[in-house]
Design a protein around this nucleic acid. Structure first.
Length: 280
DNA sequence: AGCCAGGCGTGGA
DNA sequence: TCCACGCATGGC
């Protein structure tokens, strides 16, 4: 078992997990179990440290997963200095958010499932995918299931996907699985962001918003700014925005925040969604 | 009970 | 090109 220790100055496990970028995690003892592909890491916040436990051979994977080489102080401070009060407030609340480096395939499936759906239900559907099609593994005496392989995903019936609650998205998921079988997503790494998005948009079921999420969470393109119902709300209520078209709203934020867009988007999304849930 | 969720594809103007 | 609409399901 490997133990990785980091400063908590710009690293908070709970905020990083709850800000909507990842769906495969659960509270465990004093911390959280987090899954990615066929791997698992146990994360705990201890005093002024974040401690990660994983298999020895996964140490590098999870160090990169949590984006540990990036200086989030620079990002955080430019959020404070942006001149937008709501962004300052959001950043202060989400100071410990990091943008994870997640698996590209897993992100495509996760976010094609996410459209017109709510986060608890997205989690539940992805969990069903893993428990019914994934491989059973053991970590720290706990059983868990890996994310299914493309071979398995692409050989399911349409009816299977409908049964686990995907509704009209079932066709998208099966189609995605079949298309990815013979496609290497890493080959898109070298493309500029606009070109990467052009490629992702060719997949049926993937529109602007899902495409932006995959570019940000799977390819770490921080010049992406996903606009969903929550962000549209922030835009109108807190930025006094007048645009209605989501693509144009995305472009406005990209033009305003440039390379910091993706990080700021997560601060704002997390803040707005937390606020709304407090009320309810 | 009824509105809404990390939206998208389609068909008609 | 733009817009309105339907869509499956279940969280709240």
């Amino acid at each position: 078992m490997e133990k990785l220790i980091f400063s908590n100055q710009y690293f908070n496990i709970e905020d990083t997990l709850n800000c909507g970028q990842i769906f495969r995690f659960k509270p465990f003892k004093d911390g959280f179990m987090v899954n990615s592909l066929d791997k698992r890491v146990y994360c705990v916040q201890e005093n002024d440290k974040v401690v990660l436990f994983c298999e020895d051979e996964d140490a590098r994977y999870f160090a990169n997963f949590f984006d540990i080489d990036r200086d989030y102080g620079v990002i955080y401070n430019s959020a404070l200095k942006s001149g937008y009060e709501i962004l300052k407030t959001s950043a202060q609340m989400g100071k410990g958010i990091r943008i994870l480096n997640q698996d590209k395939v897993e992100m495509l499936f996760s976010f094609i499932i996410s459209q017109n759906n709510n986060i608890p239900r997205i989690k539940s559907i992805i969990d069903k995918l893993c428990t019914s099609l994934g491989e059973k593994k053991t970590f720290m005496g706990e059983e868990f299931y890996s994310f299914p392989t493309l071979d398995v995903l692409s050989s399911q019936s349409l009816d299977f996907y409908k049964r686990i609650g995907l509704g009209y998205r079932a066709e998208y998921v099966l189609g995605l699985a079949k298309q990815l079988l013979n496609f290497d997503l890493d080959s898109l790494d070298k493309l500029p962001t606009y070109k990467l998005k052009q490629e992702l948009l060719k997949i049926k079921g993937i529109g602007q918003k899902v495409c932006d999420c995959v570019a940000l969470f799977g390819f770490h393109r921080s010049d992406s700014f996903p606009v969903d119902t929550w962000i549209e709300k922030v835009y109108k209520e807190n930025f006094n925005g007048k645009l209605n078209d989501r693509k144009k709203i995305t472009d406005w934020f990209l033009d305003t925040f440039k390379e910091n867009s993706g990080y700021f988007q997560q601060y704002l999304f997390y803040y707005k969604r937390s606020k709304e849930r407090e009320k309810g």
